[in-house]
Structures are given as structure tokens and as C-alpha cells.
Simulated assay, not measured.
Amino acid sequence: MDVVEAAAIGAAGIAAGGMNAVVGSGTLITFPTLLAFGYPPVLANVSNNVGLVPGVLSAAYGYRRELRGQRRRLLRFGAASLLGGFVGAVLLLRLPDAAFRAIVPVLILTACVLVLLQPRLNRWMKRRQRAGSRADGGVPMWLGVLGTGVYGGYFGAAQGVLLMGMFGAVLRDDLQRLNAAKNVLASLVNGVAAIVFIAVADIDWTVAALIAAGSTAGGLAGARLGRRLPPAAMRGVIVTVGVTASALLIARS
């Protein structure tokens, strides 16, 4: 690895860490960068996942104020994220990715629609909640987080968009608090997948270290920026990233 390659991978890590803190989809920066330098797809995906773990942890730390009062939610959905991340990591190592990748753009675009409709959906949900519906989304929401965790453990790009789409459509809470919860759940998914990869897969540790250093700095910076965004602007960022992610994934399939 020469200096130019190391600098490019580190810079991609910084950008990915910042994007993950605000909305997710940082993998769409680091993963193509690694492919451009000739890394095999599975090795690139595994090394990228391990490298991004410190970044999502730093983003979760940066949003620690918004995590207050969410312990019950995080415990409930955290179990789904851990299980999903483990299953997704195993699938990555056992199955071809063509079929799963084919449906990912549809999932991301659906999440973007949910984000755009969030204010109207929240008003509808408030009426349902006054009628006795569950504020945590019940079993369907838990299964949705589980499914997102499977996807996140398998590839990871835009799992934050999917989570924020579901959260914004169903949960009664401020968007910044939901984004903080998203960062914690993403760190659980990436963390458990990284443990699986470290145990049984080949990892390029130089690549992982460069991405880890960059994503940690980017995650802290992104958390500060994301907190200052008004809800409308944040929805705009989420939708822009989601549509871009879908276009990139369709182009690669």
C-alpha cells in the first residue's frame, strides 16, 4: 500500500464516519473506494465493516445527550439488532450476494418515502396511540429492526436510512433522538458482525485500521453537525443519501 492509497482510504473513512453519524450509508463511500484499489469484494466488505465499528461507536457517543430516557427502547431493539447482525454476517460468509442485493434498492427507496411522509404519518400515529396503539411499534417494528440488522450484518450500506425510515414513520419522538438510537443500533449490528468476521474471516488489518481512524474522527464531527440540523433539513439529507445509495446499488447490480 502506497501513501496515496492509504490517504484515500483514510479520507473515505472520515467521510463515511460523518455520514453514518448523520444518516448512515457510509459504506457507500468506503466500499467502492476499496474496490477501486483492487480489493476483492468480500475482503473489502469484511475489512470495511471491522473498520467502521469505532466510527459508529464515536457517533453514538457524540449523540449521548439524545440517548437519555431511551434505555427501554434500546434494550428492546438492541436485542433485535444483535441477532440480526449475527445472522447477516453468517449469510455474508455462506451465501452469494446477488439475490439480496437485488432487493436492497427497493428497501432504501421505501425508507425514503417513509421519511418524506414522516410528519403526516406521525399525526396519524398519534391518533392511533390515543386509541390505544403501542408507541414502540409492537412486534412488527421489532421484526423490522431485526430485518435491518440482517441486512446491516450482510452489507450495511444505508441500514441507517432504513432504520430512520421505520422510526420516523412509527415512533413518537424527536428526529434527533431517533437518530441517536439509530447510531446505537447500527453500532451493535456492526459490532457483532465484526466479531464474527474476526473469528472466521480474512481481514486486511491495515485497511481496517485506516478506516477505523478516519471513521472515528468523522463520527464525532458528524454527530456535532447532525445535532444542529433542523428536522426538515435532516429529512432532506436522509432522502438524498437514500436515493443516491439506491442509484449506486442498481448501477452495480
Rank of each mutant, 00 (worst) to 15 (best):
I29M: 05
G84T: 10
R228Y: 03
N183H: 00
M234L: 15
G242Q: 02
V161P: 03
S187M: 04
M164H: 02
L225Q: 08
A157Q: 02
S58Y: 03
L175K: 05
G62I: 12
S133I: 05
G55H: 04
V115D: 00
I9L: 15
P96D: 07
M141R: 07
D2H: 14
D202W: 09
G51T: 11
A157P: 09
E66S: 13
R65F: 13
P105E: 06
A247R: 05
T244I: 15
P96A: 08
T30D: 01
K126L: 15
A59C: 03
V23E: 00
V53E: 07
G88H: 04
G226Y: 01
M141H: 09
L229I: 11
I211T: 02
G69C: 15
A221K: 11
G226V: 10
A208M: 11
I108K: 07
R123F: 00
S133D: 13
A21W: 02
V42Y: 06
L74W: 06
L43F: 03
I250G: 06
D204A: 10
I195Y: 00
L114Q: 14
A11L: 15
L43K: 01
V104Y: 06
F37Y: 01
V196T: 15
A7P: 04
G85A: 01
D204I: 09
L91C: 09
Q176E: 05
V50Q: 01
Y39H: 14
A8Y: 02
G17P: 07
V241A: 13
R94Y: 04
L43E: 01
L163C: 08
M1N: 13
S215V: 12
L171V: 07
A169R: 02
L175F: 12
V104E: 01
T27H: 13
A21F: 00
L107F: 13
A199R: 14
L67A: 06
P230A: 15
S246Y: 00
G191F: 00
L220I: 05
M141G: 12
G69N: 13
A245D: 02
M19T: 14
T110F: 10
Y154H: 12
L248N: 03
A180I: 03
T206S: 13
A102M: 08
L121G: 08
M234H: 15
A16P: 10
N122V: 09
L229T: 14
I250T: 13
Q70R: 14
I238M: 12
L43P: 07
T244Y: 14
A36R: 01
W124P: 05
V87S: 11
E66N: 08
A99M: 10
S133T: 06
A201I: 06
R172Y: 09
G137E: 04
L220V: 12
F86N: 08
A131I: 06
N49K: 12
Y61G: 14
R224K: 15
I14H: 13
A60K: 11
P105Y: 02
L220P: 11
F167K: 03
G26W: 00
L114Y: 01
L185T: 12
F197R: 10
A7C: 11
G13Q: 00
A181R: 10
Y154A: 08
F100Y: 07
P230T: 07
V196L: 02
M19K: 04
G160M: 03
A221N: 08
L107K: 09
I14A: 11
S253H: 06
G85M: 05
G69P: 15
R73A: 15
P119T: 05
E5T: 09
A36T: 04
I103K: 09
E66K: 14
A135T: 09
G51M: 03
N45E: 09
A44H: 01
A194I: 07
A208H: 05
